[in-house]
Design a protein around this nucleic acid. Sequence first.
DNA 1: TAAATTAGCGTACAGTTGTAAGCTCAAAAG
DNA 2: CTTTTGAGCTTACAACTGTACGCTAATTTA
Lengths: 205, 205
Amino acid sequence: MIQTRQQQKLKTRRAIIDAAFGLLDEQHSFSSMSLREVARAAGIAPTSFYRHFKDIDELGLTLVDEAGLTLRQLMRQARVRIASGGGVISTSIDTFMEFISANSNIFRLLLREHTGTSNAFRAAVFREIQHFTEELTDYTVATTGLSKKLANLQAEAMVKLVFSTGAEALDLDPIQREQLAMRLKIQLRFITNGSLEFAKSNESI
Amino acid sequence: MIQTRQQQKLKTRRAIIDAAFGLLDEQHSFSSMSLREVARAAGIAPTSFYRHFKDIDELGLTLVDEAGLTLRQLMRQARVRIASGGGVISTSIDTFMEFISANSNIFRLLLREHTGTSNAFRAAVFREIQHFTEELTDYTVATTGLSKKLANLQAEAMVKLVFSTGAEALDLDPIQREQLAMRLKIQLRFITNGSLEFAKSNESI
DNA sequence: TAAATTAGCGTACAGTTGTAAGCTCAAAAG
DNA sequence: CTTTTGAGCTTACAACTGTACGCTAATTTA
């Protein structure tokens, strides 16, 4: 077995990250998570933590990065499903809702650090969500005649509404979640129709 | 001086509440606030805290209540300003932005407990925000021909968008904030126009 | 005036935290 | 084979936490 040393280190690092994600639930946020607690869950001594991360914040940023990655995979997945038929909004929201059901903890992390106490974290999460808005803007420009500026306004509003609704959905059971998703789809249609309307009467923007 | 005893107690209670609000800033959330810290800021012994609140969570719910009260005053204020001329959306958003500038800490509390770790807090904040949506729904039914159901969908989307944008505004300087407010006003117009459009083509809802 | 109530305090304790220091021992490098 | 490296450990400490207990002193009640 070659490079067993590095492999083991990576494995422990993974254990730490997974332990941290595992500790995230509705009662427990990352900011209220202690280094010792994470170490305990990862099965290592508290001081061993420092062999992998400078401090707990460095771990936090890593978690946000991983969450962002998962989100981007989500986007790709949604795009595939759209390509194979079904309404754009409907398919996207269904994909999104499946995501927050399957990855509640990851979504919770993003939500909480989104309005959290660390500037670095807020900025990191903001950037991840911005990716969402940018991709949706490009998509809208490509599929409709909307100007980039207007498409960006529309995309931003949509993403904010979706994330806000996602936050609410976390506390609901599947049935209520489904109803919420239906409401959301209509609300998104408000935005798409409204911006088209707006474009017609304000051709210059 | 009659009833000096009760008055003194109320005064200390106020000192605790104010101290807690004062400790809320971008670096410090209520959930990361310790009883001792609050007591220190209020100028009392840690154990004296219990003469006023059962535990720190009871204080937290009190803070959310007070924040809700301030929010409702905001709504009243916005209504007065609308009545004395100016666009509805524009006036409301200006009022809202002034509010979060003048009461950043209160708004931060609502944002953080909105996605926080305590079920009770989340529910409390959710209720406060719901007031907003309900009042806006009633207003919309009264001023437009929209059905209650549709007006509610519209109001909900608007409130979510406004709060989400407010969260973003907290980190920005006044100039960027103003730009964000302008974007928000257009996005809200998307929603109002879009829902009217939707109503026309779906008269049954 | 005497007795009862109570807001606030000081002390105390057990539990938790982050992290410094130094050891072990297996893998990697020479 | 010998030396170096480094992941993980144990121990240790000072700082902080929530809160139990009992006292004080002043207000309120009787």
